[in-house]
């Protein structure tokens, strides 16, 4: 089972970030989350989700879902890509709170992570 991103369903509430931060730190924070909303281009309402795993950075954007090997950040990853590289990788929680708190099912657990 793995985390699947469907960015077109995302409303940008960052509940997933806060939930992941709680799992890490036992408090409400987003700085240690392994999942991150891309919201750096507010004026043109561009959006996406970034998910750091042990070896990869999964980028879910309207153009599609893209998987990069860590350490190979592409120029088009933009400002939102950098901070997540400093965060801990997803620990594949038995009970993924990020999925539970997502109000639109933009995140889900599926057999094959996408």
């Amino acid at each position: 089972m793995g985390l699947t991103l469907e960015p077109l369903k995302c409303i940008g509430c960052v509940r997933c970030e806060i939930a992941c931060g709680f799992v890490r730190d036992g408090a409400f924070t987003s700085t240690s989350a392994s999942i991150m909303l891309y919201r750096a281009e507010e004026k043109n309402n561009y959006f996406g989700l970034l998910h750091k795993t042990k070896n990869t950075l999964v980028s879910g954007r309207p153009e599609g879902v893209d998987v990069s090997l860590l350490g190979v950040v592409k120029p088009e990853d933009g400002a939102g890509g950098k901070p997540i590289l400093l965060r801990p990788p997803c620990q594949n929680c038995t009970r993924p709170l990020c999925v539970e708190v997502c109000p639109t099912s933009a995140l889900s657990m599926k057999k094959e992570a996408v």
Partner: peptide, 30 residues
Amino acid sequence: KGCFGCVIACYTFIKYNEDPHVLESTSVRE
């Protein structure tokens, strides 16, 4: 679009300087 921590999306983005159906990143900044 939703606000921080909300479970519903109450804001709506409208596009009038490019096709509103375009979701991909384009050169139109505003």
